[in-house]
Design a binder for these strands. Structure first.
Lengths: 167, 167
DNA sequence: TTCATAACGTTATGTTATATCATTATCGAA
DNA sequence: TTCGATAATGATATAACATAACGTTATGAA
């Protein structure tokens, strides 16, 4: 049985129907924002779509360039504000180790849709997969409990080689 | 009994004898570099000392400013090269979530002195404490094993409030 | 001493991110 | 419907973080 915390084969995704992948993300984002009374404007929606171009993290300036190619002059704050909104809604995560952004595959699962996101990042194919692991979560909360530390934010990014890239 | 993985009370350090803290770090660094045949030059030693000014992460440009105040013209590469050396030797860690650097409290414990460093970072007092937690390590390696992922690098940084700052 | 290499200096530039203020859009209340 | 408050976006400038490239100096081994 698959529990919600399992990750079946996170890097076995190449070849999947990415168009539907994007559509799912956008539809989900619409639903979440509607439910919350937040505005997924055309710009924000487009930025989210660009973040979802693939399963590799995308730099803010990559998105900026894409936007510029379709709208002419666009300045960095335009992109950063959209990304900030999307992160706030839990629709996008920032990967600190790469200074880049990636779409969240399971947004809105929590009460407010924001959750601690943990990543496996393949240094060869560039794919980053969000994982949820009960043992990891447990170890972290026990560590926090033992040290009396109140966690507000988690940056957990494991870089290396995915199974497919280890050949 | 305290095992080497325990952290007694990581944030209960204010008031400690920080001068001896720095000295320990510098002496340790000298010993490690000597053993490895690496050169802890005056510049590198001084940068390490500046990183150890406190237990809060220090930005590269903070170090640059300090160096400039004591040596006149110093350019960014001077600082970044020294930091790169110190990181390579496991004497300093970079905190990706803060884009800042902090001295390693347990350098040279591994074969090559480089280890996965996990941090608790207090958003109030700014203190960052390196922790080693067997359960966390175990959860991570099981996660890697289960997904067939070969970890090369870990970025694990937990931000929040330390016990003392939760009042 | 000479050579090879590592360390450092110097200049320039690349990359990521934000502050600030003006303008436009949205939406509820009068 | 118009007004006014607020949110979103546009636009300009600059801050903050980092590295490429190349020349010079120091170091240590042959």
């Amino acid at each position: 049985m698959m529990t919600s915390g399992d990750v079946e084969s996170p890097f076995a995704m190449p070849g999947h129907d990415h168009a539907s992948c994007i559509m799912t993300a956008l539809d989900g984002a619409e639903a979440i924002c509607a439910r919350r009374g937040e505005r997924l404007t055309p710009l924000r929606r487009r930025v989210l779509e660009l973040v979802w171009r693939g399963h590799s993290p995308v730099g803010a300036y990559d998105i900026l360039a894409l936007l510029q190619s379709e709208r002419g002059r666009v300045a960095p704050p335009t992109v950063y504000r959209a990304l900030e909104f999307l992160c706030r809604q839990g629709l996008v995560h920032r990967l600190d180790s790469l200074q880049a952004f990636i779409g969240c595959g399971q947004p809105g699962n929590d009460g407010d849709g924001r959750h601690a996101a943990h990543f496996l990042i393949c240094q060869d194919c560039g794919t980053a997969v969000e994982v949820r692991d009960g043992q990891l979560d447990g170890a972290i909360s026990r560590l926090a409990g033992r040290t009396g530390f109140a966690i507000a934010d988690e940056t957990i990014e494991l870089s290396g080689l995915c199974a497919a890239c280890q050949s």
